[in-house]
Simulated scan of single mutants.
Amino acid sequence: MSQFRKNNKRSLISKLMTLYYRRRVGKCGAAVNFDSIVYLMRFPRNIQFGDGVYVKSGAKLCPCNEKAKITVGENTTIGYNTLIFSSVNIQIGANCMIAPNVYVVDSDHGTDRSLQMNLQENTVSKVYIGDDVWLATGVVVLKGAVIPEGCIVAANSVVKGELEAYGIYAGVPARKVGERK
Protein backbone atom coordinates (compact mmCIF):
# COMPACT_ATOMS: atom_id res chain seq x y z
CA MET A 1 0.00 0.00 0.00
CA SER A 2 1.33 3.45 -0.90
CA GLN A 3 2.30 6.00 1.71
CA PHE A 4 -0.58 8.22 0.57
CA ARG A 5 -3.26 5.54 0.86
CA LYS A 6 -1.90 4.21 4.16
CA ASN A 7 -1.75 7.62 5.83
CA ASN A 8 -4.76 9.37 4.34
CA LYS A 9 -7.52 10.28 6.80
CA ARG A 10 -10.78 11.16 5.06
CA SER A 11 -12.34 14.42 6.25
CA LEU A 12 -16.05 14.94 6.78
CA ILE A 13 -16.13 17.19 3.71
CA SER A 14 -14.44 14.48 1.65
CA LYS A 15 -17.02 11.93 2.81
CA LEU A 16 -19.87 14.29 1.90
CA MET A 17 -18.37 15.02 -1.51
CA THR A 18 -18.08 11.30 -2.16
CA LEU A 19 -21.76 10.78 -1.32
CA TYR A 20 -22.71 13.69 -3.59
CA TYR A 21 -20.65 12.54 -6.59
CA ARG A 22 -21.57 8.87 -6.18
CA ARG A 23 -25.10 9.84 -7.30
CA ARG A 24 -23.97 11.97 -10.24
CA VAL A 25 -21.57 9.67 -12.10
CA GLY A 26 -22.36 6.73 -14.36
CA LYS A 27 -20.51 4.21 -12.18
CA CYS A 28 -18.79 4.65 -8.86
CA GLY A 29 -17.09 1.58 -7.41
CA ALA A 30 -16.61 0.74 -3.75
CA ALA A 31 -14.30 2.88 -1.59
CA VAL A 32 -14.02 5.71 -4.16
CA ASN A 33 -12.89 8.94 -2.51
CA PHE A 34 -13.27 12.54 -3.69
CA ASP A 35 -11.39 15.33 -1.93
CA SER A 36 -13.25 18.45 -0.91
CA ILE A 37 -13.09 20.39 -4.20
CA VAL A 38 -13.43 18.19 -7.28
CA TYR A 39 -15.20 19.19 -10.49
CA LEU A 40 -17.12 16.61 -12.52
CA MET A 41 -18.29 18.78 -15.37
CA ARG A 42 -20.91 18.84 -18.15
CA PHE A 43 -21.88 15.14 -18.45
CA PRO A 44 -20.82 13.42 -15.19
CA ARG A 45 -23.02 10.41 -16.01
CA ASN A 46 -20.42 9.57 -18.68
CA ILE A 47 -17.71 9.05 -16.05
CA GLN A 48 -16.99 5.63 -14.54
CA PHE A 49 -14.78 4.96 -11.53
CA GLY A 50 -13.53 1.53 -10.47
CA ASP A 51 -13.12 0.48 -6.83
CA GLY A 52 -10.68 2.41 -4.67
CA VAL A 53 -10.17 5.40 -6.99
CA TYR A 54 -9.01 8.59 -5.27
CA VAL A 55 -9.60 12.01 -6.88
CA LYS A 56 -7.70 14.85 -5.20
CA SER A 57 -8.71 18.50 -4.80
CA GLY A 58 -8.80 20.71 -7.83
CA ALA A 59 -9.13 17.84 -10.31
CA LYS A 60 -11.52 18.51 -13.20
CA LEU A 61 -12.99 15.66 -15.25
CA CYS A 62 -15.13 16.72 -18.18
CA PRO A 63 -16.90 14.62 -20.78
CA CYS A 64 -17.32 17.58 -23.16
CA ASN A 65 -20.37 16.27 -25.01
CA GLU A 66 -23.16 13.75 -24.44
CA LYS A 67 -21.23 10.90 -26.15
CA ALA A 68 -17.80 11.51 -24.57
CA LYS A 69 -16.59 8.99 -21.98
CA ILE A 70 -14.02 8.90 -19.17
CA THR A 71 -13.21 5.60 -17.45
CA VAL A 72 -10.85 5.30 -14.47
CA GLY A 73 -9.70 1.85 -13.31
CA GLU A 74 -9.51 0.56 -9.75
CA ASN A 75 -7.02 1.93 -7.22
CA THR A 76 -5.96 4.78 -9.50
CA THR A 77 -5.13 8.15 -7.95
CA ILE A 78 -5.84 11.38 -9.84
CA GLY A 79 -3.62 14.16 -8.49
CA TYR A 80 -4.28 17.70 -7.41
CA ASN A 81 -5.38 20.10 -10.17
CA THR A 82 -5.31 17.42 -12.86
CA LEU A 83 -7.47 18.14 -15.93
CA ILE A 84 -9.08 15.34 -17.96
CA PHE A 85 -11.18 16.58 -20.90
CA SER A 86 -12.79 14.04 -23.22
CA SER A 87 -14.54 14.69 -26.53
CA VAL A 88 -14.66 10.98 -27.47
CA ASN A 89 -13.04 8.52 -25.01
CA ILE A 90 -10.32 8.60 -22.37
CA GLN A 91 -9.60 5.27 -20.69
CA ILE A 92 -7.30 5.11 -17.66
CA GLY A 93 -6.31 1.70 -16.30
CA ALA A 94 -6.04 0.27 -12.80
CA ASN A 95 -3.35 1.06 -10.22
CA CYS A 96 -2.18 4.22 -11.97
CA MET A 97 -0.59 7.23 -10.31
CA ILE A 98 -1.49 10.51 -11.96
CA ALA A 99 0.48 13.27 -10.24
CA PRO A 100 -0.62 16.90 -9.75
CA ASN A 101 -1.16 19.23 -12.70
CA VAL A 102 -1.43 16.55 -15.38
CA TYR A 103 -3.51 17.39 -18.49
CA VAL A 104 -5.16 14.64 -20.56
CA VAL A 105 -7.15 15.57 -23.67
CA ASP A 106 -8.45 13.58 -26.64
CA SER A 107 -9.12 16.48 -29.02
CA ASP A 108 -7.42 19.35 -30.77
CA HIS A 109 -8.57 22.37 -32.77
CA GLY A 110 -8.30 22.73 -36.52
CA THR A 111 -5.74 25.15 -37.95
CA ASP A 112 -7.20 26.18 -41.33
CA ARG A 113 -6.07 29.75 -42.13
CA SER A 114 -9.32 30.59 -43.93
CA LEU A 115 -11.40 30.20 -40.77
CA GLN A 116 -11.12 31.85 -37.36
CA MET A 117 -9.64 29.52 -34.74
CA ASN A 118 -12.68 29.69 -32.47
CA LEU A 119 -14.95 28.53 -35.32
CA GLN A 120 -12.98 25.44 -36.29
CA GLU A 121 -14.12 21.90 -35.55
CA ASN A 122 -12.21 19.72 -33.11
CA THR A 123 -10.32 16.70 -34.34
CA VAL A 124 -10.59 13.77 -31.92
CA SER A 125 -8.82 10.49 -31.21
CA LYS A 126 -9.16 8.21 -28.16
CA VAL A 127 -6.58 8.24 -25.37
CA TYR A 128 -5.60 4.96 -23.70
CA ILE A 129 -3.60 4.75 -20.48
CA GLY A 130 -2.95 1.16 -19.38
CA ASP A 131 -2.60 -0.38 -15.92
CA ASP A 132 0.28 0.45 -13.56
CA VAL A 133 1.20 3.73 -15.27
CA TRP A 134 2.83 6.68 -13.52
CA LEU A 135 2.34 10.12 -15.06
CA ALA A 136 4.58 12.54 -13.13
CA THR A 137 3.77 16.18 -12.36
CA GLY A 138 2.91 18.38 -15.32
CA VAL A 139 2.63 15.65 -17.97
CA VAL A 140 0.47 16.51 -20.99
CA VAL A 141 -1.21 13.62 -22.83
CA LEU A 142 -2.50 14.54 -26.30
CA LYS A 143 -5.19 13.03 -28.51
CA GLY A 144 -4.47 9.55 -29.85
CA ALA A 145 -1.86 8.77 -27.19
CA VAL A 146 -1.46 5.13 -26.15
CA ILE A 147 0.45 4.67 -22.90
CA PRO A 148 0.55 0.91 -22.30
CA GLU A 149 0.99 -1.07 -19.11
CA GLY A 150 3.82 -0.19 -16.77
CA CYS A 151 4.99 3.05 -18.40
CA ILE A 152 6.52 5.94 -16.49
CA VAL A 153 6.35 9.43 -17.99
CA ALA A 154 8.70 12.02 -16.44
CA ALA A 155 7.61 15.43 -15.19
CA ASN A 156 6.59 18.05 -17.76
CA SER A 157 6.74 15.62 -20.69
CA VAL A 158 4.30 15.74 -23.63
CA VAL A 159 2.95 12.40 -24.86
CA LYS A 160 1.61 11.86 -28.34
CA GLY A 161 1.47 8.62 -30.29
CA GLU A 162 2.08 5.13 -28.95
CA LEU A 163 4.62 4.27 -26.26
CA GLU A 164 6.12 0.84 -25.44
CA ALA A 165 5.02 -1.15 -22.37
CA TYR A 166 7.25 -0.68 -19.29
CA GLY A 167 9.16 2.13 -20.98
CA ILE A 168 10.39 5.22 -19.18
CA TYR A 169 9.76 8.39 -21.18
CA ALA A 170 10.80 12.03 -20.86
CA GLY A 171 10.82 15.21 -22.89
CA VAL A 172 8.84 17.26 -25.37
CA PRO A 173 7.80 15.20 -27.20
CA ALA A 174 8.29 12.28 -24.80
CA ARG A 175 11.01 9.87 -25.94
CA LYS A 176 12.09 6.58 -24.44
CA VAL A 177 14.98 7.09 -22.02
CA GLY A 178 14.92 3.73 -20.23
CA GLU A 179 12.93 0.70 -19.27
CA ARG A 180 11.52 -0.65 -16.02
CA LYS A 181 13.36 -3.75 -14.86
Rank of each mutant, 00 (worst) to 15 (best):
A68P: 08
V124S: 05
L40M: 14
K143S: 13
Y54S: 00
R10P: 06
G52V: 12
C62G: 12
I152L: 15
C151L: 09
K56D: 01
N81K: 06
Y128Q: 11
V158C: 13
R42A: 06
R180C: 07
C62M: 09
V38A: 05
V102T: 02
G167H: 07
V104G: 04
V72G: 00
R10K: 12
G79W: 01
V38E: 02
M1S: 10
Q3M: 05
A155T: 14
T137R: 12
S107G: 11
R22W: 15
I168A: 05
K176E: 05
L119K: 15
Q120L: 10
E121P: 04
H109A: 06
N95Q: 05
L16C: 13
V88A: 08
S157N: 10
I84N: 01
V32L: 02
G58M: 00
V158S: 10
A155S: 15
D106N: 09
G58E: 00
L163C: 10
A155Y: 09
T82R: 04
V102Y: 03
N65V: 06
S114W: 05
W134L: 09
G93E: 02
E162Y: 02
D106P: 15
V32I: 06
S125A: 15
A94E: 07
R10N: 05
K126H: 09
K6E: 11
N33W: 14
K69L: 07
C151S: 11
L135Y: 13
K56V: 00
V124Q: 08
I147T: 07
L115R: 13
G178L: 06
F85I: 12
S57V: 02
V133M: 13
M17Y: 07
G171C: 09
P44Q: 05
Y166A: 04
D35L: 01
I152V: 15
K67I: 10
V105H: 02
Y128T: 05
I78E: 00
S114N: 11
S14D: 05
T137Y: 04
I152E: 02
L163Q: 12
E121A: 14
G138E: 06
M97K: 02
A165S: 14
Y166N: 15
S11L: 05
G150H: 11
E149I: 14
A59Y: 01
Q120P: 03
K9P: 00
A68G: 08
K9I: 15
Y166F: 11
A30C: 04
M41W: 15
E66F: 07
P100H: 07
I90S: 09
L12E: 03
N101G: 00
V104C: 12
N95K: 11
L142M: 14
G29H: 09
V146F: 14
R42F: 15
V159N: 15
C28Y: 10
G26T: 07
V139M: 13
G52E: 13
Y21D: 01
E149H: 15
G26W: 03
G138F: 03
A154R: 07
I152F: 14
K160F: 14
I47M: 07
N156Q: 09
A136E: 13
N81D: 09
E164H: 13
V72I: 15
D106F: 04
Y103F: 06
K126M: 10
Y166M: 11
E121I: 08
K160Q: 14
I37E: 08
A31N: 12
V153E: 11
L16R: 03
E74C: 12
K143E: 10
G138D: 03
G138W: 01
H109V: 14
S36N: 14
S14V: 01
L16F: 12
V141S: 05
